[in-house]
Amino acid sequence: MLKSFLEGLDGLTLECEARRGQACSLKDLEALRVEFLGRKGKLAAAMGALAQMGPEDKPAAGKKANEVKNALGSLLESRQAELDAAATQDALSGFDPSMPGRRPAAGSLHPITLAMQEICEVLTGLGFEVVSGPEVENDWHNFEALNMPPDHPARDMQDTLYVSDRVLLRTHTSPLQVRTMLSRKPPVAVIAPGKVYRRDSDLTHTPMFHQIEGLLVDRNVSMGDLRGTLTAFVRQLFGANTNVRFRPSFFPFTEPSAEVDISCVMCGGAGHIGNEPCRVCKKTGWVEILGCGMVDPNVYRAVGYDPEAVTGFAFGLGVERVAMLKYGIGDLRMFFENDVRFLEQFS
């Protein structure tokens, strides 16, 4: 009796093994599971004989029955894994990772804005605070307070668009120096980004362009501080290997005044690329980037500061120039056409 019981159980295993391959769906498999392992299944039926066995045979028969139950379970489980894998395969068969994504429209900032933001970030990082002011200005703020009295030849340096005799479109962001000092006591450390206007339009000039003005006034500010600030500034902007050159120059509102050249970003200061002369720096290896100087005592007098008590520096640079150098834009007019094929390059 024990023998036939054991053979019957082995038969179950063999039968299940043979038939599980025919189960082609989870439903088939479930039916198979019920047939073999269900409450009224084949294993349960075989187990019915266990009750009539003698006590000497029961342990062996019970042990065998458990083995077969586990064997059947794992046979069905492995088939389930096969079916799951096949189902996943089916589900993925239509998946094409190369289809275009549902892309939201891409926006972009104007390259002038990008350059301006970068410049402002570097300068605010150095401790300057951003101020803003009017674009329509008084002659006094734009010229007189900046040591440019009426009929002074220095006014020739900036061709002006006038609204009336005494009102004009600011020709530089420098009136913000005046407005800031009028409204604050030293120390003052500000930058003023914004639009400026000149009566000038050709290949290298547009009647509107963007400038950033910087001003630091405190006790004992020296030209060495100016050099340090601008050196740090251009190196953060154009790279750590950028060299800076100070050339004496003239601005009515600074004394001494200097123009600052940086080593050419295109040719690295060599003046040529391979055997070709560099067009960006015209073979000089230097590119003029900004003007600066120590604030003229007459400006302090105009705003009510004591020129014996404070010193300071001011600088100003053209944002378009920086954008052209940084992004390799050759034609100034591109900036204001707003052709989307141009704009989208700065996404």
Binding site: P187, D218, V244, R245, F246, P256
Partner: peptide, 13 residues
């Protein structure tokens, strides 16, 4: 002017 040593100012506020 190009031979003035560069130093970073302490910006007091």
């Amino acid at each position: 002017l190009d031979r003035i040593p560069a130093v970073l100012p302490k910006i007091s506020k």
